[in-house]
Design a protein around this nucleic acid. Sequence first.
DNA 1: ATATATTGCTAACATTCGTTAGTTGTTTTA
DNA 2: TAAAACAACTAACGAATGTTAGCAATATAT
Lengths: 203, 203
Amino acid sequence: MFYLRSMARIKTDKNISRKDVIVTKAAALFREKGFKAASMRDLAEAVGVEAASLYNHIKSKTELLHELCFSVANRFTHKIDEIEAEPINSIQKVEKLLRFHIHEMINHYEEVYVSDREWKHLADPYLSNFQNQRRIYRKRFAAIIEAGIRNKEIKKIDAPTAVLIMLHAISGIESWHRSTQKIGAEELEENMITILVGGLVNR
Amino acid sequence: MFYLRSMARIKTDKNISRKDVIVTKAAALFREKGFKAASMRDLAEAVGVEAASLYNHIKSKTELLHELCFSVANRFTHKIDEIEAEPINSIQKVEKLLRFHIHEMINHYEEVYVSDREWKHLADPYLSNFQNQRRIYRKRFAAIIEAGIRNKEIKKIDAPTAVLIMLHAISGIESWHRSTQKIGAEELEENMITILVGGLVNR
DNA sequence: ATATATTGCTAACATTCGTTAGTTGTTTTA
DNA sequence: TAAAACAACTAACGAATGTTAGCAATATAT
């Protein structure tokens, strides 16, 4: 028996739900075009399905953005939990945190980028929650730097400004990804650490 | 004589065209909501006029984006022309360029932000031109850093990576603007210079 | 093998969007 | 002051958007 028209399903490996496939494709699309400019029909095409079919797996377009933003934010929150508890000095904590940011930006580019740039399009209460979570994260990061300043490990600088510089500098890895003549990922990481940590340490 | 319905015109001072008023309001709106999410009806309301009336002064929504992006890009191009010609060392050139970026980001926040984040929505040939202009600018910036490395003024680092860090770090001033507890603009500037230049210099 | 749950499809909806046409009111020019 | 230029308005268009309803095909469980 054969069918004139076959309904090809979204391909999934074990342990990867169809929803995960959609979320992943959404990240790539939102990164490329921006959340607002990316249409559900674009996403459907990327997934290989009709637009309406997506709604068997997801609740709404905004839900995709929630999932992306919070999965990224939660990873950073867990990491700073971990690092705060370690018995190392402030500069080492900053360096560990920066390296984590760099790895995330290199390896989960699309999601991290979307979370960074498109969170504005979240709707309340997600919007407020997200902003809160980020604000708290930055405060904890700043607190690590302030501890380093008190120990004289770190220059006397405004800690929130330092945090702002670090986080945005790392988001510049976006340009590296789009660049045609990329240096290696490890070299990129070492250069970033050299410049950023070098700008903090007290000598 | 009086009118039941009055047609209030867009207010203009001398030397400020109605188009300039629209472009300025567009910058604020595009910054707040993003280019795609900001509608012409939103813009009309901000200007105090009906949406259709805008088209007596502008050609299209995209034209607004062109004007914003290129006016910003041209200011940076002119500045680097100027700085390249000065008889000062590389670190001083970098510092001057950074201070210019910081001033622009502080004083022309909305336009610079829009140019930085929303250029993706330009259409060709503007898109290609813009990307080209930015690429060339970054190369010239990198060349200044490379000269500094050759003179041993600057650490041995990958110059394009350094440029990427600097430019994105400065775009972080966006967070400063949105922050409720802002430090002063001068203090912000000095902190940024301390950290960024401090990360470059060879000691 | 049959029943049930999934997942796909087509068609269509209500909105919103950028933009144009045509007109009226207001300012500037001759 | 009349004519010409300018800038506002109302109305509407066609296209695109997110989403729903209802049905067909496929996979899974009994």
